[in-house]
Design a protein around this nucleic acid. Structure first.
Lengths: 345, 345
DNA sequence: CTGTTAGCGCCTTCAT
DNA sequence: ATGAAGGCGCTAACAG
């Protein structure tokens, strides 16, 4: 184990050429300038020795490591998988690699991770875990390395960004419920410090407002997107309605599928049936929600495509640092299942 | 953007000491041999400049990159999250980082990824995506870098390995069903080229054999662990029983939760109810299976802990390459929900 | 076309 | 206790 791998030196010696000739022969960009014969000799020697270039040493000189750091909020989040695959595969197609790290939503981790990626000489960094208050830290890091924002934007920064179109996605949810004839709405609020949840809330609210309607919220917002928080908020909405002597809403928007799961449970706790009494729309279309009871109507996000786009942006900005920044928004699509139906009566 | 980060040279200049003095001052192992005053000056200069050592350059000399490659089968697999977090966090606690790559279960990818990690000078590699036929490739790579097997073992290799105790986990499932009084069993077969699925099958079979019972299989095995394959195999089991003029089994073991989901659907297709007519035990306890209808009885795996163990093994073998290899098996636990109940009648 | 010569940024014997 | 010098493995001018 751990025998020393062959170096370019060994290859050159075996091919009986100079070190730098070997280097050139192995570089597709330069091998054109060499005799076919020399190239053949070097290639052969390299193959015989099982030579593979040391990417660290190469990067040291070339000032490019072909590495892109990716900051993930939560490895256990269901869309982390598709997202990672998206950026990973785009990068791989261009001989780059992704380095993943996780903040676990802890505020202080982001800065440490960015610094670490810098020490590893990442050529660019994709941040998918930004909180709205991270502007300064991101701006600071952006002076040293190109940064791409994905999934979560940060208002006020001018970094290249690719987001799900959450405003539109949530509008889709609202439109669907309106189409079905609902008029009494509630929406559960996601964590307030995350940009995407704000946009979902705004999108849902705006679509209702067009029809001069509003949604109850229960007066609280989730500390994190979990079933437990969904359950808590749904119960609050119900309690609020009861306290005001009003009937419960017939349609509820949960800005994440897991919160929707909790909401359905809260309804059951209160003796209400989904979708019989209350319709629910979730968000994300995570695995298995189509197999819940009832199968959840939800908004699907093109997470892998978003990952691919983020990867592409990273490669672009590496190739041309002077690139003008832009904000891309990828469209969501409503997946209609059985947790929504026109209101009774 | 992309201003050049300060180098050790800059720090030395600012502290008015020699390059190598600065190097020593910043190395906790060596700073003892310097005047407290010099150390202070250097530390201060480093802080003022925001100096962070270039890990690539350091690794080049030190022949340690503090990087561990992790080969994942599938980023979208639900236990990939906990697993990644486990190894990532253990490594982070010891100033190492994980580099993740994905085979997507494609046979040719493993070799390419191993080679790539070598080129990046990973200090060790954790392979969680091994197929039983990968022995040669792994043995080859193991000559150049320490390799740890996790989740999936490879019979015949002697690499340090940490696995879920699938044999025991599947026995638990069988024991549970036997306890409930079931006597007519089926089990769906997972992909044959993956070690874990073989062990689950063997564990289930062995426990039944102790009571002199056997399980029908439908005569086929899954090409991949998906709901569609679960559905197909369950239908085959039903058809097989019908063709033989026998009653359907009352208890089914699905070696993965997603296959269980498909199996439940196949039962419904055949007009059978789970758990009314047929009990099902899944495997993995992935998110949301507790919210299915019926909530799935399943076997939970300590995936994050497994990741942590794999990370620990990697660090161990980096510190001491002569470490004797061992195979660890982490215990599974049966999570009893509502998809199983004693047979009717 | 190919060899020579400098480094990339850091660490690590040697001396002193 | 600190400076000097060489090299990790590779690439990139610059010669010839």
């Amino acid at each position: 184990m751990s025998r020393r791998p062959p170096t370019l030196r060994d290859v050159a010696a075996r091919a009986e050429v100079h070190l730098s000739t070997a280097s050139r022969a192995l570089d597709p960009q330069q091998s054109g300038r060499l005799t076919a014969e020399t190239v053949r000799r070097v290639t052969e020697a390299a193959a015989a020795l099982g030579y593979a270039p040391d990417l660290l040493a190469a990067g040291l000189k070339r000032r490019r490591t072909r590495t892109v750091g990716v900051v993930i909020a939560d490895f256990e989040n269901p869309f982390t998988g598709p997202l990672s695959r998206g950026v990973g595969s785009v990068l791989a197609e261009h001989e780059h690699v992704a380095l993943f790290a996780e903040t676990e939503e802890r505020g202080d981790r982001l800065e440490a991770i960015l610094k670490h990626f810098l020490q590893r000489r990442a050529d660019a960094i994709v941040v998918t875990a930004a909180h709205v208050c991270d502007g300064a830290v991101l701006a600071g890091a952006a002076q040293d390395v190109p940064i791409i924002l994905a999934i979560r934007g940060v208002p006020g920064t001018d970094l290249p960004t690719v987001l799900h179109d959450d405003f539109n996605g949530a509008s889709l949810a609202a439109a669907h419920l309106l189409d079905q004839g609902h008029r009494r709405f509630a929406q559960l609020s996601g964590p307030v410090d995350i940009d995407t949840f704000q946009r979902r809330r705004d999108g849902f609210t705006a679509r209702l407002a067009r029809d001069e309607l509003t949604a109850a919220t229960g007066g609280s917002s989730a500390s994190s997107a979990t079933p437990a928080e969904g359950r808590r908020l749904m119960a609050l909405v119900l309690a609020e309605a009861a306290a005001a002597g009003e009937p419960a809403p017939t349609a509820v928007f949960a800005p994440s599928d897991v919160m929707a799961v909790g909401a359905i449970e809260a309804l059951a706790d209160a003796g209400l049936d989904c979708p019989g009494d209350v319709s629910i729309v979730g968000y994300n279309d995570i695995p298995l929600v189509g197999h819940l009871s009832p199968p959840l109507t939800t908004v699907r996000l093109p997470s892998e495509e978003l990952g691919r786009t983020a990867g592409r942006l990273a490669l672009q900005v590496i190739a041309d640092p002077g690139l003008e920044t832009e904000i891309l928004r990828l469209p969501a699509v409503l997946i209609e299942r059985s947790s929504t139906r026109p209101p009774a009566g």
